[in-house]
Structure formats: C-alpha cells, structure tokens
Amino acid sequence: MIEDRSKESDEEIISQVLNGNVDLYEELIDRYSEIVLGIVSKRIPLDQAEEMAHEVFVRAYRSLQGFNASSPFGNWLSKIAVRTCHDYWRKRYRSKEEPVNSLDPEHREWLDGFMAESARNSFDRAESKKTAREIILWALEKLDPGDRAVLELVHLEGYSVKEAAGILGWSSGKVKIRAFRSRNKLRKMLEKIID
C-alpha cells in the first residue's frame, strides 16, 4: 500500500530520512524538483540542467544533517542549487573547456533590429525572448564565475545584497562591490556589441 505523505511537513520527512528511512527522500524530490530545475535551467546550459539538478539533490541529501529547521527547506535547497551552479562555472572557468564564441549572425540581426526599433520607441514588436536570452547568456559566459553569480542574484533576479551574501557565503560588502563591478562589465560588453 502506498502511504500518502503529502500532509507530512518537510521537517518531519527529513527527520525520518535521518533516522534511516532513506526512501522518503523521494517525497522531497517530488516536492522540490520543479524549483530546483527552475534555478539550474536559468544558470546552466539547458542540456546539462537535468544532471545538475541531480547533483543538487544528492548534495542536499549528503548535507541533510546540517539543515536547520528554523528556515524553510525550500530556501536551504535553493541555496545549494545556486552554489552548485556557481561551482559548475568555477570548474568550467578553471579548465576553460570551451572558448567563448562570438555572437551569431542571428543575434547580431536581433540587436540591430532592436536598436532600430528602440529608437522609434516600438522595440516590443521586435522582441524575441529566445534570442534575447541567448544574448544575455553569451554575455554572462564572458564574466568570471564570481561576477556571474552575483550578477545573476542581485541584478537579474532582484535579491537584496544581504540575501545574496547569505546564499553565496560572502560578506555584504563583497557582494555590494562585486555586484557594482559586474554590472558595469555587463554594460560595457553590451555597449561594445551595439557599436
């Protein structure tokens, strides 16, 4: 008989997992897979999002004893997801697996169209979300992993400096400085490509 666990709180499930009922962890994966996939798919190339989400859940499981029930499990897990993505970029940056490509002709065309339309205040008609997203991902890939992580959290997702500092395990001062610098870098990059 399959037991209905939907009424049990995350904390209750976690305590049972820690007491040896490992199979119950599946319930937590059910509850949070969408959130984790949402976080990683924004930060990591889409073809690797599934593998990265897998790693997030395994990491969370291994650190489960460190979970403090004073904050929601979802927040704790999101923090692990963001840090796992940050580690991915750090590894990739260190190994420099693939050189950063220049913009595709399709992206150039989009930018030209965008600039022309924006001059006439009607750029919304020319928008193509997918292409715009590819351009921002291209720009982010040119930043170092620390700049990238802080820019994603503070500038792109609107986290406060304090929240971002908590997620990345940095001081607020460091986050503030890096956020300012990384945004400037992004703007300089955008300036170059629209020239």
């Binding site: 999002a49 965008f114 928008e127 715009a132 997203r133 921002i136 991902l137 703007r187």
Partner: peptide, 16 residues
C-alpha cells in the same frame, strides 16, 4: 532599454 530587455528575458527562463 537593451539591458532591461535582456534582464526580463533571463527571468522568464525555459522550462526543462
């Protein structure tokens, strides 16, 4: 405007 547009495109993301 371009920056705003790119930021909003990033927020929407893609379903996986």
């Amino acid at each position: 405007i371009l920056e705003k547009r790119l930021v909003s495109s990033w927020k929407t993301g893609e379903a996986v």
